[in-house]
Design a protein around this nucleic acid. Structure first.
Lengths: 294, 294
DNA sequence: ATTAATCAATGAGTTTTGTTCATGGTTAGT
DNA sequence: ACTAACCATGAACAAAACTCATTGATTAAT
């Protein structure tokens, strides 16, 4: 069978002219190369070179092998380089799965310095999953998951990276804007905007409205945070978002946020990863960076 | 060092799922593969796979190697095939892919003297491709492509081999036969025959009718040049073909050709081949012969 | 809950392959 | 003709790759 060594030999002959020098460059004896090619010739049934004077001239077969060598050897060494980087932990990929729509802005701030620190790490952010982000993590489609509600599994570890309060957002001119907090029944006449996910996964339902057996006048689905807040600012309805996010938008938009109930809804963002990958440097650093970013 | 066998192993695992089956497919023992990879792991300093349950899962390093395998192994086997052919005295093969229906007649004239000159070259002409002729070229299914519209790729070189004019063909008794050239609007009441390919790939549409926002009364698809011209000769419609081809048929059929617009549509036929194979003698000669043939 | 089956890892022993050494033959330059 | 530069070859040795037999882990079946 045609092996890498055969390609290396022909390549070295191309570079150094003679078999002897080629042998030196490969740290082998001239005899070794000669034997090696002789054997291959026996296998493929045709000569690879012929002696011409005291040098070698490649046959058609030899030229074919050389063409293959030119194409293929650089790829071998490139891969070996990459493997080396991987071994040193300098390289790899960080595929992030997001299960938290509004966290995207926060993630951008995490990623920015991280990319500078790990220039050779290939990064990718995914937001849609056929079998859920957790499934994707277990399936090796992603490496890291960012979620506000960790679903514990034996092979996954979650690390809390920051705390925030989930708050109701209303227009600055809304009646409720005068209050510090809102009660479930005060929403019964409101239009509520949420991201398009199942209600039981929305805290405003599971932790606020449903326990009090209240509901809203209408529930509308909106995909993007910007549009959602535009609608709220225009007084068309209310929505529920992380406090820090609202604070940011409140600088430029006529919106206000208030606590859910007297105690508010406290939330945490978790980074989840596969247990056995916890001590890989560039994963650890990602978590460190995430914890640092508010 | 990363060897072909390592690539074969990862490739076989991809194909057969387990190490045991992979070993069978390579006619080796499971133990051999395990040892072989273990040794490589020691050399590169990182794991290639890890056991998960009773199966294997590739690490980042393993995936790298697999990508290399995908890229490189087909090239090895392709070269081995060629070497085999050379050994059998076939000297090599020239597999021609055609992307230009009417060029077939021309190709026959190229091949005729070429076959005499290279009696040991195995020749084959293909006209249908699952992923396009270019894909076939990149995939080593063919060695040469003949096309009027070269799609430039870094690894492919195109050499123009002859110029011709794309012309409208009408029956000798057709009104238009009196004219030297035709205008787009003059076709609005005609039946147009073309080969069954997407209209945007037909020059009569992309370079003549569509720019003038004109169309034809009816567009019918016909597979073969002969039948197409029979239809045109019978006054059933018009078609667009290379000038030289029409000239030939016009000797025995009542047809005439005329220019598209005042300036006509100028075309070129290109021969495309893989860059690193350009200096193989029997390829060079094929191109020389193609350039010579009008 | 046992048992059986599947699958990968490991160590020892054997076979195969690769390498060197020593040598001989051929060519080109002096 | 002599010498230096090359490549080929065979035998001896060294290294590697491979197999066999076993172990350990996991999963599926009874």
């Amino acid at each position: 069978m045609l092996e890498r060594i055969h390609l290396e030999i022909l390549n070295a002959i191309k570079d150094h002219g003679t078999l002897t020098k080629a042998a030196d460059s490969l740290y082998l004896s001239q005899s070794a190369l000669s034997h090696s090619i002789k054997k291959l010739e026996g296998q493929i049934g045709t000569a690879i070179w012929k002696k011409e004077g005291r040098n070698l001239r490649l046959t058609a077969a030899g030229e074919r092998i050389q063409t293959l060598a030119n194409r293929v050897l650089p790829q071998f060494s490139h891969t070996e380089l990459l493997l080396n980087q991987i071994a040193k932990g300098e390289m790899g990929s960080l595929r992030i799965g997001m299960e938290c729509h509004p966290c995207y802005q926060w993630l951008l701030r995490v990623i920015q310095p991280y990319l500078l620190q790990w220039p050779d790490i290939d990064m990718d952010v995914k937001q849609e999953f056929q079998f859920g982000a957790l499934g994707a993590l277990l399936n090796y489609e992603i490496d890291v998951i960012i979620t506000p509600d960790p679903l514990f599994k034996p092979k996954i570890d979650y690390i809390p990276v920051f705390d925030y309060e989930h708050r109701l957002v209303v227009s600055a001119t809304h009646e409720l804007a005068k209050q510090d907090f809102v009660l479930p029944e005060q929403l019964s006449d409101e239009v509520l905007f949420t991201y398009p996910v199942e209600p039981q996964r929305l805290d405003i339902f599971s932790q606020f409205l449903m326990p009090a057996k209240c509901s809203v006048k209408k529930h509308k689905l909106i995909e993007t945070t910007e549009i959602m807040l535009q609608m709220v600012a225009a007084g068309r309805g209310v929505c529920a978002l992380p406090g820090w996010l609202v604070d940011e938008y409140a600088k430029t938009m006529p919106i206000k946020s208030l606590r859910f109930g007297e105690k508010g809804i406290a939330k945490q963002i978790f980074v989840g990863l596969r247990k056995d990958e916890q001590n890989i440097d560039y994963f650890k650093d990602f978590i460190a960076q995430a914890k640092k970013t508010k």
